[in-house]
């Protein structure tokens, strides 16, 4: 059963990514990305990282994708014109690189399997452990990430302000 769901989630992950790569319209690409993210969340469940799978669905499928679709709604769905030969070329390149991954990935995991295991065993599945590690070992990166989010928020406000309206107001004064 786990094997079956593993193949289903892999197919969702890579099929969605291929749709993003090949689609002409933005909305199709966004739907492909949704499929890909759900596949990634499923793989995380199979890795027993339940908390991260939940965050993945709520942050990526819930907010990032909605943001994409919202922007597509603002600027309109534009169809790119790409020839069939270009698509065949992209798929060919993808298959060649996939064969390369199939060659290199077992070697990488073989090399990694020789590493020594850390003595402490923690459970990736529980949200409580994330809180504990974030508040002790990763306190500084956690604070920096918070500061970065604040800076991003202010930056987005500055970028989104309309300068032409400001100029018009200045001319009025």
């Amino acid at each position: 059963m786990a094997d079956f769901s593993y193949y289903i989630f892999c197919a969702m992950l890579l099929g969605g990514a291929l749709v993003v790569l090949l689609s002409r319209g933005y909305v199709n690409a966004a739907m492909g990305m949704l499929c890909s993210m759900l596949g990634a969340a499923g793989l995380m469940v199979l890795m027993q990282c339940y908390f991260l799978a939940f965050v993945m669905v709520s942050v990526y499928a819930g907010s990032v994708l909605v943001l994409f679709v919202f922007v597509v709604m603002l600027i309109g769905d534009v169809k790119e014109n790409s020839s069939i030969w270009r698509k065949i070329g992209i798929v060919g390149l993808w298959v060649v690189l996939g064969a390369f991954v199939g060659w290199v990935s077992p070697m990488l995991s073989q090399a990694a399997a020789g590493l020594s295991k850390t003595t402490e065993v923690v459970f990736l599945s529980q949200a409580k452990n994330y809180g504990l590690v974030l508040m002790t070992e990763f306190m500084l990166p956690f604070q920096i990430a918070g500061a970065l989010l604040l800076a991003a928020m202010i930056g987005v406000m500055v970028v989104a302000k309309n300068p032409s309206r400001k100029k018009a107001r200045r001319e009025l004064v």
Partner: peptide
């Protein structure tokens, strides 16, 4: 490791 690393690498390359 390989079971989950291979799709991850493939996604990155895509």
């Amino acid at each position: 490791i390989n079971q989950f690393l291979a799709p991850a690498l493939m996604l990155f390359i895509t």
